[in-house]
């Protein structure tokens, strides 16, 4: 039997909004440790890695490891039926081919449940090598979303260049070029409003705007985002989900033609 009760169904809804652009369906792997998901987009350019820790749930019970394949458009329909302050309880029997979502309003004045069919997905997991990143940049997630949105108007790719002075995002296209430079901030009082750069070696890599824009759908989950860069290695864009876990995106770089 699997049962997980999350205080805020809105948090799960945000997670769903952050992955459904990239994935049509995905397997949620449930174990004692929590709920995990790892899946590549259809083009095998990006990978989504979600980890929701069991102790982030109000109630969590997983008697046997369970993989639940779900269509994310269907799952979105289910979560569209939840109120913003509802709790959600996810339930499945050990060998079930369905999963149940129960939404409860704060004062129990409304309780609804939706049963959804599960899918058998043949998803392979990828081994992600440990990497010593050359540059790790922390910045406000809203600022990152803004930069990606602004630069995407001009070109299809963004070059992220990092030195110890700061980080530069650049693009070029038919109408011209655009550059945004962020300096490291000195005010560490408010960490989630700061730009913090941990640089071992300067690095400059090119990435697709389209994918970066999809990743920024996770902005409502966290005030801060972490970008980890290293030559010839996929970019990691990481959003911490407060008290619950994290959502990481990996993106293969573009290389010179």
């Amino acid at each position: 039997m699997f049962e997980a009760r999350l205080a805020s169904s809105a948090t799960f809804k945000k997670v769903l909004d952050a992955i459904k652009d990239l994935l049509n369906e995905a397997s949620f792997d449930c174990s004692d440790a929590g709920i995990q998901l790892q899946a590549m987009d259809n083009s095998h350019v990006s990978l989504v890695s979600l980890n929701l820790k069991s102790d982030g749930f109000e109630k969590y019970r997983c008697d046997r490891n369970l993989t639940m394949g779900m269509n994310l458009a269907s799952l979105s329909k289910v979560f569209r039926c939840s109120g913003s302050d509802d709790t959600v309880t996810i339930k499945a029997q050990d060998d079930a081919d369905t999963v149940t979502f129960m939404f409860e309003a704060k004062k129990q004045e409304k309780i609804s449940d939706y049963e959804m069919k599960l899918m058998n997905l043949d998803q392979e997991h990828l081994g992600i090598p440990e990497t010593e990143f050359s540059c790790i940049i922390k910045l406000p997630s809203g600022e990152f979303a803004r930069i990606v949105r602004d630069l995407s108007q001009f070109g299809e790719s963004i070059v992220i260049s990092c030195t110890k002075e700061g980080v530069k995002f650049s693009t070029q296209g038919d109408i011209g070029t655009g550059n945004v430079k962020l300096a490291q901030t000195n005010n560490f009082d408010k960490e989630d409003q700061s730009v913090i750069i941990d640089m071992q070696e300067p690095v400059s890599l090119t990435f697709s705007c389209e994918y970066l824009n999809s990743f920024t759908k996770a902005t409502p989950l966290s005030n801060q985002v972490t970008l980890s860069l290293c030559d010839n290695v996929p970019l990691v864009v990481e959003y911490q989900i407060p008290d619950l876990g994290h959502l990481k995106y990996y993106l293969a770089p573009k290389i010179e033609e």
Binding site: M40, V45, H125, G127, P129, T206, S208, P234, A252, E257
Partner: peptide, 14 residues
């Protein structure tokens, strides 16, 4: 502006 690489060049199936 550059050729897109595949993630499969970097990560191998487990």
């Amino acid at each position: 502006s550059g050729n897109q690489t595949s993630l499969m060049n970097f990560f191998k199936p487990k």
